[in-house]
Amino acid sequence: MKHLLSIADLSAEEITQILDTAVSMHEVQDRQVKKLPTLRGRTIINFFFEDSTRTRASFEIAGKWMSADTINLTGKGTSVSKGESLRDTVLTIDAMGVDMMIIRHPASGAPAQIADWTDCSIVNAGDGTHEHPSQALLDAYTLRRALGDLRGRHVAIVGDLTHSRVLRSNLLCLRALGAQVTLVAPPTLMPSGVAAWSAADGFETSYDLDAVLPTVDAVMMLRVQRERMSGGYFPTAREYAVTYGLTARRLGLLQDHAVIAHPGPMNRGLEISADAADAARSLVLDQVSAGVAVRMSILYHLLAGEGDAQ
């Protein structure tokens, strides 16, 4: 593994290895002194062309705890006007001899292009509406801790699916681990071509959240931006919350063991009610806490190679 660009590039075994290594990384988090020497002397650039708080912070902490030199850079998504191409920009950084670039970019596919242009290891930290693989890995890690082996488990992913990079990575990751997946959204928020896609990849779709909830082991609520209303994706926030929000009433439809996930940031009162977000079965904070451990594991597998993390 040189890059982490898309979950589609990983086998089920590789995903499992990353999750397994994350378990031991998670233990580091509880130590008073958290440094591991693993990546001493390695240089990691967090190159974020789009704002991010939690992803950037957790990648930076992950790198620091593994003793890498981490540097944060921000860039504008488009530098067409400046006359410098994205290729020029990243080649400049690559020429300084860095080992890894962690890329967040508002345009889908940018990390894959950068991997073609440069020699260093590339991690996709979220590209446009394409993928967010580290998020999917930490979600799988969190679900696995809550539910055990995900094979045969049923996960519903609900929300603004067409604009969600989290959806695409989670769908691939959960399917690779053998989970059943049902996408739930109004037709306007389903990904383009979802009928052909679901037939090819073996997942379900539904417009009826109430019908799906009683059958799931986990429900993953995705953020719905209020601005989507202006694009005509749904009429009002109120209507969305009533039809597709995880309301207090809908909590009662879940099986006793079923858990709730949300990759954040949450829109309380829209896609998720306070009752659901703060419920005992909510994994929201576990997801955040798993973020550092899973990202340490990713850095380890890409930069340190195979073997025992300790």
Binding site: T78, S85, L86, Q113, G128
Partner: peptide
């Protein structure tokens, strides 16, 4: 020219 094509696909 190259610099107008060597961007992220969307750009």
């Amino acid at each position: 020219v190259r610099q107008d094509k060597e961007h992220a696909f969307a750009d």
